[in-house]
Design a protein around this nucleic acid. Structure first.
Lengths: 348, 348
DNA sequence: CTGTTAGCGCATTCAC
DNA sequence: GTGAATGCGCTAACAG
């Protein structure tokens, strides 16, 4: 019964949305005046403005962003094109992009190309049709990916995976600094017998992090324990590698891992071998993938790539480019940070 | 050099995008004819159509979806409103929604409200301004969440987390069936001493799955080993619970876990206790979270909630509703599926 | 078959 | 201060 007294149920898309014209009529002013009042533009008498605002409120008027964008020539939307099925990188980047302005200021079309070039093309077309102000391309590795080319009418930023075209702008985490930072952390804790277990050597991320590790040991006048151990990014490999390492170099007291998954495997193997972490051996992961890092025993110290900040930067660059600024080119390496947990620092 | 021969670099948003008018002029036809030719509407001479298509191609014309939507009254976009920070549910749902039509047919605005009601309101406003054709609300628990209300001008579907208003349409995985399915799987393997370790009892998911487990044991004439063990969704709890369980009921031969994280902990504890999986004890997880399920030893059999199908269904319902169909109401429980791995079935 | 006209919802000149 | 007119890019009637 209470329902039937409502004057405008309009529950599911029924009935035209109220337009600015409706508001103007109700307020007894012209369309132009209503527009000015609502947008705070031009000189409108305070009383008139209030009348318009009230009318808009009563009719629960929502300005049609389509019409506005059509005039303005910009939509306040960006496309986020990804092949990151896990969503591990893309979600923080999305959040960063939203943050770069304010909730609801800019909206993001998220498209998943699933690693398929055709699908990617379809999505790009669709995004351009919808007149996004720019496109952020997110890859799932830090290896270069094919450029979208320069014949797009909007600025493009490559995030995480850089473009293979150096004239594009790419933002990617500084893996080298990450490797260095992780190693310096162990050194700072007094470790001197440090090994590095990483993933697939075909990945730029693996190589870059390894370079950073070596830089840190070199700088400290230390020798890396054994060669860097490459294979794949799995927990299985982490276990196998750690077993091998303990056999060959039982005196190891610190292990820098190329990923949190590997680190989980390493922790497992160390426990099986009766070594305690971090007392006997300190272990550090990479990626700061929460579900892995905070559920291990002990919890995992890890390097975080600051994806959210990366997303924020990417969005800013795009809108700066629209406002006339040059978007720039080349690959920028963004700072990473260390998150300390129990695998390197004993719990207080 | 090849670059400089290109006539229209147009690299970053410079210069107005080409309009249908440009195409028409170049093809020597009127605006209307060009429109018909491109959309395959009306009768246009084959030769004329070709001329228009060619012109469009040469100018790399992209129809302005804003203008089209303004006329059509629908945009072919949906809003995906989430608080699922992990992206674990939302990404499959997004993919399903895209799939429901075809790549680029419908686009999705993804908004992360971060569990903040204010931010959620902002996002809803923005989505309505942009005239999305509908909204999918994704929660991260299967507990009911506050309804957005019925005064929205577009259809709304609640996914994963149902609405607390029974007149809304909610799509959620059938947790009861999942619990039953997992348990029946163990029973089918000949296990008779089955226990259930689950997460936070305040979660509907925990309760529903437990009900399913009991239904299966009852139907088989079995008694559940001990009470259902509730606490939280962590690996730590999985380890502790399993240890406890082994002490009290050493004869247990099957464990249904409330999540993959718990299952990981259970596997750990079983190994520490010298039990082999699946020979001594079969273990089954829940969620099929790949990174957890495929990296354990042995790999984890798990129940998958089919989120992608859920997303597909949600999107279809929304567009059906726009086309006049009644969107329906109440909570629909969508089928889940079992993914078998080594923790219940020995590797071939 | 093709072109002319009107209008989607709104912001912006420019007179009054 | 306010309102009438013009146009953003496009499609849907209508005439021709």
């Amino acid at each position: 019964m209470a329902d039937s007294t409502q004057s405008k149920p309009r529950s599911t898309g029924t009935g035209r949305a109220t337009t600015l014209g409706d508001v103007a009529k109700r307020a007894g002013v012209s369309l132009a005046t209503a527009s000015k009042a609502i947008n705070g533009r031009g000189d409108v008498a305070a009383a008139t403005r209030q009348r318009v605002m009230d009318a808009a409120e009563e009719l629960s008027f929502t300005p049609n962003a389509l019409a506005r964008s059509l005039i303005a020539g910009r939509t306040g939307t960006v496309g986020l094109l990804t092949s990151d099925l896990e969503g591990r990188f893309v979600i923080p980047i999305l959040m960063g992009a939203e943050d770069a302005f304010g909730a609801g200021q800019v909206n993001v079309f998220l498209c998943d190309a699933r690693g398929d070039a055709i699908r990617e093309q379809h999505h790009i077309r669709a995004l351009l049709n919808r007149r996004v102000d720019g496109i952020i391309v997110v890859g799932r590795q830090t290896d270069p990916r094919p450029s979208l080319g320069h014949d797009l009418p909007v600025p493009v930023v490559y995030a995480y995976a850089p473009s293979d075209d150096p004239t594009d702008l790419s933002l990617t985490p500084d893996n080298r600094a990450g490797g260095r930072m992780a190693t310096e952390h162990l050194i700072g804790l007094g470790r001197t017998r440090i090994a590095h277990i990483s993933g697939d050597p075909a990945y730029a991320a693996a190589q870059d992090r390894a370079v950073g590790v070596r830089e840190a040991t070199d700088a400290a006048g230390l020798e890396l324990v054994g060669d860097v151990m490459f294979s794949d990014w799995s927990e299985h490999w982490g276990r196998d590698a750690a077993s091998l390492l303990l056999t060959r170099h039982p005196d190891v007291d610190g292990i820098v891992c190329g990923s949190d998954q590997i680190a989980r495997g390493v922790l497992d193997a160390l426990r099986d071998a009766g070594r305690t972490v971090p007392d006997d051996v300190a272990v550090i992961g990479y990626d700061n993938w929460e579900v892995l890092a905070t559920n291990s025993r002990p919890e995992l110290t890890s390097v975080d790539a600051n994806m959210q900040q990366l997303g924020r930067t990417a969005a800013r660059r795009i809108f700066d480019a629209i406002d006339g600024a040059d978007i720039g080119s080349g690959t920028e390496y963004l700072p990473v940070r260390l998150v300390q947990r129990g695998s390197t620092v004993p719990r207080r």
